[in-house]
Design a protein around this nucleic acid. Structure first.
Lengths: 165, 165
DNA sequence: TTAGATGCAAAGATTTTGCAAGATC
DNA sequence: GATCTTGCAAAATCTTTGCATCTAA
């Protein structure tokens, strides 16, 4: 979790990403800087469109194509994780080099996304019995349920319930 | 797993689905019958396009829109599970009423999808500590790795390696 | 100066929707 | 016969690609 938390070496994820990118032979550019900064500052995963919208709001607008290209670049270098919450959007989140991961819970009513960690679940996933010969690399876990807010609304008369997003 | 395995009552999943659909007030139709039969006969999840392609191959072609509509209908009645393997396609698989579930492993090289079960993982998922107030409903788990075939290819000289799909 | 980065617009791919024709009950 | 289902085509989304321009090194 910890947005913009320093990486093991004391540097920010953004610094780590920049270094990895240049070592890979990529040049720096305005769009890339914006995307990296957005991801570094975000507490959770962002879609390409969200990155573009936030860049506009921050007075540093970038093109949609650039957002997708930078995100793909970061993904190919394992600097971000690609997350699919099942709504047809690809989301990305910064991946700290220490391998720390978290999972996501999505509210089936309002779509709210909440990150969470669970060490026991993590162990079970690492120890998961994959089919013979399969060597596991990573795992994606998405839980679905109702957030506190929407669970409460279910108990209220329909007229008072807040309409879901 | 077990494709076309009888449900607890001894009926096939297709029969169960048909009954549930009519109880919900839906009428039967050619397209729906084909989709239900495809899912019942499939060992694993199918995309809408796969259903359409197989329907054509089986000499009972259905329209793309119908496939999507029937799949959505089945999903809303919890007769199928919607699965997102991260490649931008929605897949669906029959959901037996006894609640038996399995997960999927995807080969990062060739895209092969293999179902698997793991009771310990299942327990960890059921016991997962969701954020406060969140009531969990279901979970999606996708593991990624290299299948036996592709792991072997990595050891061969590039010239002999089979090109990935 | 050279090769990569960027942005716009067009193209691709997947899924949804409008509407007329055909089936079911 | 009323209503739901189906299928074609158009629309809506999300993502990728082509190409000219700009820019980092």
């Amino acid at each position: 979790m910890s947005p913009s938390a320093p990486c093991p070496g004391g540097r920010s994820w953004a610094a780590h990403a920049g270094e990895t990118l240049s070592r890979a032979g990529h040049r720096s550019g305005a769009a890339r800087a914006v995307v990296v900064q957005m991801l570094d500052a975000s507490a959770c995963c962002l879609s390409a469109q969200e990155v573009v919208d936030r860049s506009r709001a921050a007075q540093h607008p970038i093109g949609v194509a650039s957002a997708y290209r930078v995100l793909e670049q970061l993904h190919s270098l394992h600097l971000v994780r690609r997350i699919d919450l099942g709504d047809g959007l690809a989301r990305y989140e910064a991946l700290s080099p220490d391998g720390e991961r978290h999972h996501h819970v999505v509210c089936v009513e309002c779509g709210r996304v909440v990150p969470f960690e669970d060490h026991r679940l993590e162990s079970a996933l690492s120890a998961a019995s994959a089919p013979p010969g399969f060597s596991l690399i990573e795992h994606d876990v998405v839980l679905r349920g109702r957030c506190a807010h929407c669970s409460r609304d279910l108990l209220l008369p329909p007229a008072q319930a807040v309409s879901p997003a």
